[in-house]
Design a protein around this nucleic acid. Sequence first.
DNA 1: TCGGTCTATGTTACCGCTAACGAAGCCTGT
DNA 2: ACAGGCTTCGTTAGCGGTAACATAGACCGA
Lengths: 344, 344
Amino acid sequence: MTKPTPTEPRRALTLRDVSEASGVSEMTVSRVLRNRGDVSATTRERVMQASRALGYVPNKIAGALASQRVNLVGVIIPSMSNMVFPEVMTGISAVLDSTGLQPVVGVTNYLPDREEAVLYEMLSWRPSGVIVAGLEHTAAARAMMAQAGIPIVEIMDIDGQVIDSAVGISHRRAGRQMAEAIIASGYRRIAFMGTQMPNDFRAKKRLEGFEEALRRNGMALADHEFYDGGSALLKGREMTAAVLRRSPDIDFLYYSNDMIGAGGLLYCLDQGIDVPGKVGLAGFNGVELLDGLPRRLATMDACRLEIGQRAAQIIAARNQTADLIGQVVELFPTLQPGDTIRPF
Amino acid sequence: MTKPTPTEPRRALTLRDVSEASGVSEMTVSRVLRNRGDVSATTRERVMQASRALGYVPNKIAGALASQRVNLVGVIIPSMSNMVFPEVMTGISAVLDSTGLQPVVGVTNYLPDREEAVLYEMLSWRPSGVIVAGLEHTAAARAMMAQAGIPIVEIMDIDGQVIDSAVGISHRRAGRQMAEAIIASGYRRIAFMGTQMPNDFRAKKRLEGFEEALRRNGMALADHEFYDGGSALLKGREMTAAVLRRSPDIDFLYYSNDMIGAGGLLYCLDQGIDVPGKVGLAGFNGVELLDGLPRRLATMDACRLEIGQRAAQIIAARNQTADLIGQVVELFPTLQPGDTIRPF
DNA sequence: TCGGTCTATGTTACCGCTAACGAAGCCTGT
DNA sequence: ACAGGCTTCGTTAGCGGTAACATAGACCGA
């Protein structure tokens, strides 16, 4: 590679510097650096040399303003610390990488107002598209997205009203499905454990679907417990201990995510409880963490990787072909019975 | 909030639209929206009304070009899926939030070339600063950062040559410290398990420090095992099984991160191995996951939150006061003996 | 009464780059 | 020899804001 220039330039380099150094017009330099338009091999080489020698880095701000094109895609997610969104991001990046588009993430911490603020900030950079987790937004956020004139893909969930496009699963159905599997395996006294967070709409929908299926079978939740903050694994242990102490006749524990489910599983094994004989367990998400547990927790894979990929594909396609229209893609999670639910 | 405008504007709104709608100049609108300069209360209100009614979102691209100021801070990290960087991000966001600066993250997957590409992309948006994990970069990346004319903070590590500023711990020292504690507790046949990745320089430095301390005590690693990819928890189990089978006389297992350490711990407990009597274990990072394990894994907290905070503080301070100079902040991790190492 | 000091607003000139068009040089066939 | 087409490069005019300065009243004390 080129040697770092010895001089320390106080003024930032511009196209003009490169053009003067290489004896061509700014336009030609621009063409070379963007690989656009016809430039002879010799001038191209000369310009590249000069550009590298100077250590020039193009100013995308000016470029974007002039060309009215920004290669950024806003991605708005509620959290980075649970294991689910990194995998969505992997799917998004994998697809976007080959399109010249670049994801920019914003985190909302499950706060609608924060989502609105993050969205506003992102739109002010005029991205080529936005991928946002969930269907629930403030009225203002909804209006902004509807007006933005760019593809908007809401991901993870499809139970609700879509602004433009959506890729996700039906969490209500997922909850129902799990309940039916549990009932089919003969469990009857079922408890639920999940997050306190009122804004985790997807967890809420799963619970709704779950309870609905229970009702249809003439049953109801025998107990429940909520948590917020702290180590999810530890909370899983604690809540499980509390529930089993309070309701010793419980025979199934349904967790709103795998992490607390894993905590519950470890607790049950510690206590020498017969799993899945005396008590069955199930979580949600299908995180790879579960592979390392002493026993495989029953779960339901949320199609995270594919959700990311499909969402990115929609943005990329819309970006190329302007007249495409919004679409809703429903994915279907598969139940992974693992070793913590009695065979049917 | 204002009702969404019924019309669907095909052309993006500009300051001019707002200025016409409110009967003042563009400049005045700009002043109102940025809360800068003197504007009478009545015009301010009128402009706000018009802006909201139209659903105007300022164009930061144009703004940044004109003002030569960008409120973005690039954050370059190797991965989002291990538990360590989310916490660093939390620290960064917490500090940046109150400064008007906004983090933009890029992920390198531990690939130097990818780091260079991500950095180039980021610098082309002329951010107010860059926070980058690690001290090892390609020559070109190093040159770019040195030339950029913005504050650069390298985080996590301080064992090496700093470009501008750095906040981190000495991983070599951390490795040494852990080795000394292990030896002091009477363990003698020590194995190491870690990632295969040749570019996880910090893990490598920990191992170097660890081996150096062993040597100084007339010892050497009795066995080692490396992995890459897959569920870290599961890999921890597998590697531990392999090592204990191969070298049954091992009495201590040192893991390069807590996740594989947790896997190893679960395996040992499954096998009914006396921990820490027959075999001791230790990891690295101090992730909160450990709180939920049946027994607390010995570890060393890597000061992740504080690293993020301090790094952000440096960027913020430099952004306000131009003539500040680079600095290196060393933090000191504390050893948490947990329950998997014999008391001294 | 009048210059001086505010306060509130408008005007002008860019910021660094690219779209769109234009022109010069060079080939080609006739 | 020359029209017509291609390749290669330059010129011009913005993109949508903001810094810096200019301007117009309002107010004020001497």
